[in-house]
Design a protein around this nucleic acid. Structure first.
Length: 553
RNA sequence: UGACCCAUGGUGUAACGGUAGCACUACUGAUUUUGGUUCAGUCAGUUAAGGUUCGAAUCCUUAUGGGUCAACCA
């Protein structure tokens, strides 16, 4: 019975492996790690990996370490270290230990010596080109290096001198001695250490030789006794080398498991490409709201909850995929609908004069969020002259047009029902103003008019409205998968991914803070941008409302 | 012309030899002082061909399609 209930839960393949390992008593707890290289900002793909690793060790006994894979000093920087830590925390996760592969450089060096002593590694004087040309191809065996059979003593001496800085960059490498005819290219005497006289963000100038990924990653996992080392599919061929090194080094046997990285349409998630967008100024920075980076999504107004929900919904598997960005947007709307404060903002104003409204105006009340009974209310000024959206009026409306038209009535949200009496045009025939009458008995909350209207419009009081800059974003790329198209991915950048409009907002918005999320009624979800000042309101469009009405033309 | 990984509606993901399910999208309808939300419903899928079996998305074979591998990157 209990087994049946348990079986109803759908596990992904990693959870199945973990549950089997736990059930077999192979591990008492599972240890995972999130291993970013500090050479770029985290993006939505990393979010998926973070949710996976940290989520697994939340679900099962154990913990996740944060380990920076900082073995290439020329591309890495502490700016990235800090942004990565901030992004993980913002997403809602906390690591057990903050670790760096560079912390293990001494140990890794000892491991290299051990390999040399076992006759399993050698110093190669070949140039980069020579090594490449002797590597063979997937269908052709490679050739042994001229230096492959040096004595252990000579290798020890040369490697020590490499470490001591006696040789120039690129002049020598330490290579594993495996098999140049191996079917797996990675096993054809892979390079373990290379010379780089470069300043490292943590170890400074202590080292001039640095381990390659394969010589560092699995060993770091092992040092940390990581039980489940989860990475993406392109590392599948590395697993053989990962295991070979652990076996020869006789160290703790961590295991590598691979899953398919998540791709999202109309964007790119490759740090190299994202870096290019930043350095070539196609966007304003790593946190440009159009970027699929965690910092960009945060600035755009996406919530951590919605990103976690998205990662949860797309799941994990081993097959190639392109997730529809629409699902991400659904998750964002789903959360924002619950928490966003409703406000009224008119983007393309059309003046409305209420010919039968006298007096200086009045303050009306409106709920902050109809989804939240405890959300409270706010005051909105109402007056004789109002602004509505140009698109909410049509002189010759199609059928089923619920908005304003000559002789037609609509409700102004939280205010009165109005009727369009007259259309005022300029000399060119453009509509510049509407003269309407309002129904005094139709006041929101105390409506005794008995009139039912289909349409409700958002509006602002003309004299009380405040100007705000609104930045509206569209997808960064014109095609679903820019990386798979011919030519450069940058050829497919959407030239109109940013549209700036000056809008007219109700006064309550003056008090906005960056932490608040808004829904501009009938428009979408918005948030204050970091560029905003006390003099100038600037909002980012997070995502639009689902739009259920399309005029038939 | 090798090896490895993968193949379920438009998209993502389940079903572990026994009724192909869930979510997003799209489309209907109801409700609605947001053409939003909510609610109800509809359309739509096992790459192909063989084989094993009482029974195959699932196991086997072959084919087809996609991805990965020849950086002193990770």
């Amino acid at each position: 019975m209990t087994e049946e209930i348990k079986n109803e839960e759908q596990l992904n393949f990693l959870e199945e492996i973990i549950e089997a390992d736990l059930a077999a008593g192979k591990y008492q707890q599972i240890i995972a790690r999130f291993p970013p290289e500090p050479n770029g900002y985290l993006h939505i793909g990393h979010a998926s990996s973070i949710c996976l690793n940290f989520g697994l060790t939340k679900k099962y006994p154990g913990y996740t370490n944060l380990r920076f894979d900082d073995t290439n000093p020329v591309t890495e920087d502490t700016e990235y270290v800090e942004s990565i830590k901030a992004d993980i925390r913002w997403l809602g996760f906390e690591w057990k230990n903050e670790l760096y592969a560079s912390d293990y450089f001494d140990t890794l060096y000892e491991y290299a010596l051990k390999l040399i002593q076992k006759g399993l590694a050698y110093v190669d004087d070949s140039t980069s080109d020579e090594i490449a040309s002797m590597k063979g191809t997937p269908t052709e065996a490679g050739k042994n290096s001229l230096y492959r059979n040096r004595s252990i003593e000579e290798n020890l001496d040369l490697f020590t001198r490499m470490k001591n800085g006696e040789f120039s960059d690129g002049s020598r490498t330490l290579r594993a001695k495996i098999d140049m005819a191996h079917i797996n290219m990675l096993m054809r005497d892979p390079i373990l250490y290379r010379i780089k006289h470069a300043h490292h963000h943590r170890t400074g100038d202590k080292w001039c030789i640095y381990p390659m990924y394969d010589m560092a990653h699995g060993q770091s996992d092992s040092i940390e006794t990581v039980s489940h080392s989860i990475c993406t599919l392109e590392f599948v061929p590395h697993r053989e080398l990962y295991n070979w090194l652990i076996e020869k080094l006789e160290i703790y046997p961590s295991h590598q498991y691979e899953f398919a990285r998540r791709n999202i349409n109309y964007t790119v998630t490759s740090k190299r490409k994202l870096l290019q967008l930043v350095t070539e100024k196609h966007v304003t920075g790593w946190d440009d709201p159009r970027m699929p980076t965690i910092s960009g999504m945060r600035r755009r107004g996406y919530t951590a909850e919605s990103i976690r929900e998205f990662c949860d919904r797309i799941g994990i598997a081993k097959r190639e995929n392109i997730v529809d960005v629409g699902l991400l947007e659904f998750c964002v709307r789903e959360h924002l609908n619950k928490i966003a404060l409703r406000r009224m903002v008119v983007f393309h104003p059309l003046k409305v004069v209420l010919s039968n409204y006298s007096g200086d105006g009045e303050w009306l009340e409106s709920e902050n969020n109809p989804e939240d009974p405890n959300g409270g209310k706010r005051k909105i000024p109402f007056g004789r002259e109002l602004l509505i959206e140009q698109e909410d009026f049509m002189e010759n409306p199609p059928k089923k047009y619920f908005r304003l038209a000559p002789g037609q009535m609509v409700r102004l949200k939280s205010a009165y029902i109005i009727k369009c009496e007259e259309v005022i045009k300029d000399n060119n025939g453009n509509i510049v103003e509407l003269h309407c009458t309002y129904i005094p008995e139709s006041k929101s909350g105390s409506d005794t008019s008995g009139i039912n209207v289909k349409g409700t419009l958002h509006w602002v009081s003309a004299k009380d409205a405040i100007e705000a800059e609104v930045r509206e974003y569209d997808r960064l790329f014109k095609v679903e998968n820019p990386s798979s198209e011919d030519g450069d991915f940058k050829d497919y950048i959407n030239p109109v991914s940013l549209n700036i409009v000056t809008a007219y907002a109700e006064p309550a918005l003056t008090e906005s803070s960056i932490a608040e999320k808004f829904q501009f009624i009938r428009k979408g979800y918005y948030c204050l941008d970091t560029d905003a000042t006390s003099e100038k309101l600037i909002f980012n469009k997070t995502v639009g409302l689902k739009d259920g009405w399309k005029p038939a033309h």
